[in-house]
Amino acid sequence: MAVLIVSLSTTVALALDPSEMLDDPVQEAQARELDHAMRCVVCQSESVASSNAQWAIDTRRVIREQVAAGKTNDEIIDFFVERYGEFVLMNPRPSGSNWLLWAAGPLMFLTALGVGIGYIRGRSKAPQPIQTGLSEDEAKRLREILDE
C-alpha cells in the first residue's frame, strides 16, 4: 500500500517541472488552480496538473503565460473552451445544453424522496382488514372438523 501511495505522489510531483513555475507565488497559485481545473485532452481522465503528456505540458506553459500577462481565470478558461470545447474542463459549466445534466441528480433525488414519502404515508393509511367472527354454521362445521 505504501508503495502505491509513494508511486502516485511521485507521478503528480513529476508533472510540474520547476522551470515552468512562475516567480510570483500569487500568480503561481492562480496557475495551479487552473491546472487542476483543466482536463488533459490526451489522457482524458487526468487534470493538466497531474499529466505528463506533451499537450498538458504545453497547456501549463500557456496558462502561465496568460497568468503572467494579467488575465483572469475566466478569461483563461474561456480561451481553452473556445479552442477545445467544454470537454477541456474537469467540471463543465452548468450552462447551455448541459444544464439538464447538472439538474438531473437533484431532481432524481427529490423524485425518489417524494415517491418514498408517498409510499410510506400510503402504507400507514391503508385500510385494515375487517375481522369478523365465524357464523353459526361455520363455527359448527369447524367443531366437527376438529373433533374428527
Rank of each mutant, 00 (worst) to 15 (best):
G70L: 01
A112E: 08
A139E: 12
R93C: 05
N52D: 10
F87D: 13
S135Y: 00
V62Y: 03
R64G: 02
V81K: 02
R123E: 08
R60S: 05
R123T: 07
L146H: 05
R143T: 07
K125L: 08
R61N: 07
Y84C: 05
V88L: 06
R123F: 02
F109E: 07
D35E: 12
W55G: 00
R39H: 02
E148M: 08
H36E: 14
V67N: 00
Y84P: 00
V67D: 00
I120G: 06
G70Y: 08
F87P: 00
V88H: 01
D137K: 04
R60T: 01
V6G: 06
A69V: 06
I63K: 01
G116T: 07
Q128T: 14
R83C: 03
A126S: 10
Q30T: 05
L14Y: 05
D24W: 10
D23E: 14
N98D: 12
D78V: 08
A53K: 04
V42T: 15
F79M: 07
D35F: 00
K140N: 10
I57T: 05
D137H: 03
G114A: 14
R143W: 05
Q30E: 14
K125W: 11
T72L: 03
A68R: 05
E33V: 07
E82G: 04
C43A: 15
V115P: 03
A15K: 00
S97G: 14
A126N: 06
A126R: 15
V115S: 11
E33K: 08
S51R: 01
L107K: 06
F79Y: 15
W55V: 08
Q54L: 09
Y119S: 09
L146N: 04
T11Y: 03
L16M: 07
F79S: 04
P106S: 09
T11L: 13
R32W: 08
D137E: 15
K125R: 15
E28Y: 02
T132P: 01
F80Q: 00
S19E: 13
A49K: 01
S95F: 07
A15D: 03
